[in-house]
Simulated assay, not measured.
Amino acid sequence: MENVIIEVIESKCSHYKAGDKIYIKDALIDMDKTENVCIMALQSFFPFIFATRKGVTPEQMGFGERLLVQCPDYCAPVVFEIKKII
């Protein structure tokens, strides 16, 4: 399977707190494990889900050791880390 976890690293948003997770199972959001998926936040990590699922590393995508993205809502920023689950 090609599973990805998106974890909140820091948040100033009322929808997320540090440690919250969004689980991707193959090409679907696993809603049994995931609490919230904000459509604004989805924009920040959506482009990286497929690459992460296919094993492309953060370094190969131009990031450092960690793939960190920020929600585009600058009034209530949330930082997410995207990781492949092995």
Rank of each mutant, 00 (worst) to 15 (best):
M1C: 05
V4I: 07
I5Q: 01
V8F: 00
K12A: 11
K12M: 00
C13K: 07
C13S: 15
Y16D: 06
A18V: 13
G19V: 14
D20P: 05
D20I: 13
I22V: 10
Y23M: 14
Y23I: 14
Y23K: 10
I24L: 13
I24H: 12
K25N: 11
D26V: 06
D26A: 14
D26K: 15
A27S: 12
L28G: 04
L28A: 10
L28W: 01
D32P: 05
V37Y: 03
M40Y: 15
A41R: 03
A41S: 15
A41W: 02
Q43G: 12
F45M: 11
F46S: 15
A51Q: 13
A51F: 08
T52C: 04
R53G: 11
R53P: 03
V56I: 15
T57P: 09
M61I: 11
M61C: 09
G62E: 05
F63S: 10
F63Y: 12
R66Q: 09
L67S: 03
L67A: 03
L68Q: 01
Q70N: 02
P72Q: 04
D73S: 10
C75Y: 00
P77F: 11
V78K: 06
F80D: 03
I82C: 09
I82H: 07
K83S: 09
K84V: 02
I85H: 05
I85N: 09
I85K: 09
I86T: 03
I86V: 05
